[in-house]
Structure formats: structure tokens, C-alpha cells
Design a protein around this nucleic acid. Structure first.
Ligand code: SF4
Ligand code: SF4
Lengths: 142, 142
DNA sequence: CCGTTTTAGGATAAATGTATCTCTAAGCCG
DNA sequence: CGGCTTAGAGATACATTTATCCTAAAACGG
């Protein structure tokens, strides 16, 4: 479904949102907490900052933090920033230039399920998830 | 979503189902018809025959054909034979051993959408698709 | 200003997925 | 049987993803 990088990015974003700590958090701390390779996670956060979702600061007491409120960042935003929009635009058979005009046989069935997927991720904010994590002690790591 | 191999396998299976020609069809013919690398497609059909979905015959007038009626083969069968069941069992955050017992924060939302996806593919047979292809001249290739 | 900490960015290595190649085995035909 | 055709299977190349490494740039703290 998602690339490993995207899974890591989602877990890291959910972890940060659950902290309720406004200020920079170092990537090393996040990686160690979630058992994710710190150098790899650094690359992922670079994408998130370049996409404008996070902002970063170097040096001691530096790290990464949300560029806007977790209330205004959806899972969709994170996914697209890391994996690109292909999952929500390209489609099951991978045919070039497909769509309503020249549909493949699956099109009618598939569009009924692709939209709910997109809506789910587009309507769920990091803050929503953070509330769930705190209420039910849900886990982000093994 | 699916691997390229799985996309090719689905397209090939749908093509065969749409033929209404009971008998062996050579992989070379399928590959050339659908613009898919013939050696790679051969590998994919090896998986489908090993999974018991197709049967094969070597030599002239050989090729591959369905091992049981296209009415009894679902898209789910093809997907699992090629990509494995991970898409339908493993889940969004890729956490090991996740599930109802130790859910991640997305679990409740995600299960509402994963089941429809699985049902869609599990309830659609190759014969269903073949009918749609013939009725509406739907395409399988660029 | 200098040493330390931390992200940024590019280069490199390992692993996986995609595609090709070669040889074998099976089947057909004369 | 001998030559041709086709799938099977393993080895090999290529591409992409995943992960690591190294040097720089920015920030802080003495
Ligand atoms: S389902 Fe629709 S959008 Fe997806 S490959 Fe088929 S025609 Fe294209
Ligand atoms: S949604 Fe459920 S099954 Fe999927 S990773 Fe989260 S806990 Fe596991």
C-alpha cells in the first residue's frame, strides 16, 4: 500500500502530534523512540519540511516541528508529501492515460472504493489521531 | 497499490477471459497483444500455474489456459497468487503483529475501508470482467 | 571565535523488484 | 528419431527503494 518511507513518516508524524509539546524535537529522539533508522528518517523529514508540513532548526535544541497546527495537517498531506499522489490518481491496472474517457474494465467498480480511501485520509487530521492515541493508549511501535 | 507484475497478471488474465477461446494460448501471443515483456510475463504465469489458477502445456499448440472456469476465479485469487496476501492482511503502518489486540491509531478507520476493498476483488470474477469488456469494448492496453 | 550539536545534501552500499538471457524439459510433427 | 516450438527454471543485468556514510551549513554555548 504505502512505501516503507511513508509508513515511517506517518508514524513519526503521529508520534509528534501525540506529544503535545510545542517546540523542536530532534530526529534522533524520534527515531530511537520508534525504532526507525535515524539517517533514513532524516531523509523523510527533509521531504516533509520541503513540502511545507514541518519546519526545522539546526544546532543544539534544534529538531523538527509542525509548520502549522496538527489540526490542519491531514494524513493525506503526509502521504502525498512522501509517496506522491500516484496512489490517489494512478490506478489499478497501471494503464497510461486511463480515466473516464478510456476506462479499463475495473474502472466502475474501482472508483467506488478509491474515493472512500482518499476521503478517509483527507478527512483525518494528525490532531484527530493524536486524540485517539491519548484516549486509548494506541501504539506506534512494536 | 499493486506491483507491476500483478498489473500485468491481471491484464493478461482479463485478456484470456475475454477471448472465450477454450484451449491453450501462447504467452508470446499474450505479451505481444498487451505490450508486456514476454520473458517477464512467462515468470508471472509460472506463479499463476503454481497457484493452480492456470494450467500449461509445452510445445507447439501449447500455452496457458485457465485450470478452472473463469466464473470461479476472482481478481483476489490472481492478486494473492502474484503479490501475496500482504495487501489484505498487513496494514497501513506496517507494524508487526498488529490487529484488534494491539491496534494502531488508524485501525478503526482503516478496517472500514479495507474490507470493502477485499470484498470488491473477492467478489469479482474473471468472467464478470470478461462480460464487461465485451459489452463496452473496454481496453486492456494502451 | 571555537567546539559541539543538529539538520541538509550528496554520494555510496545493500536489498528488493523488474526485466532479460540461457539452458532444459516437454510436446508436436515429419 | 530429429528438428522445431513452447513453458520451466535458474542465472544474470538493470532500476528503484531502502539504508548508510560523509561533508557541509546553521545554531548554540562556552
Ligand atoms: S480503474 Fe479507471 S482509472 Fe484505474 S486503471 Fe482502470 S480505467 Fe484507469
Ligand atoms: S490499522 Fe489495524 S491492522 Fe493496520 S497497522 Fe494499524 S493496528 Fe495494524
Amino acid at each position: 500500500m504505502f512505501s516503507r518511507a511513508c509508513e515511517y513518516g506517518l508514524r513519526a508524524a503521529l508520534y509528534l502530534a501525540s506529544l503535545k509539546h510545542n517546540g523542536y524535537v530532534s530526529i534522533r529522539e524520534i527515531g530511537e523512540r520508534l525504532n526507525i533508522s535515524v539517517p533514513f528518517l532524516t531523509k523523510i523529514f527533509q521531504k516533509l519540511t520541503q513540502a511545507g508540513l514541518m519546519q526545522s532548526l539546526r544546532g543544539p535544541s534544534g529538531g523538527v516541528m509542525f509548520a502549522r497546527s496538527p489540526e490542519e495537517i491531514t494524513l493525506f498531506d503526509v502521504i502525498v508529501a512522501i509517496d506522491g499522489p500516484d496512489l490517489f490518481t494512478e490506478c489499478v491496472l497501471g494503464l497510461p492515460g486511463c480515466g473516464e474517457a478510456a476506462p479499463c474494465p475495473l474502472h466502475d467498480h474501482w472508483k467506488e472504493v478509491r474515493t472512500p480511501i482518499r476521503d478517509l485520509f483527507a478527512s483525518t487530521t494528525l490532531a484527530d489521531m493524536a486524540r485517539r492515541i491519548q484516549e486509548a493508549r494506541l501504539r506506534l511501535t512494536a
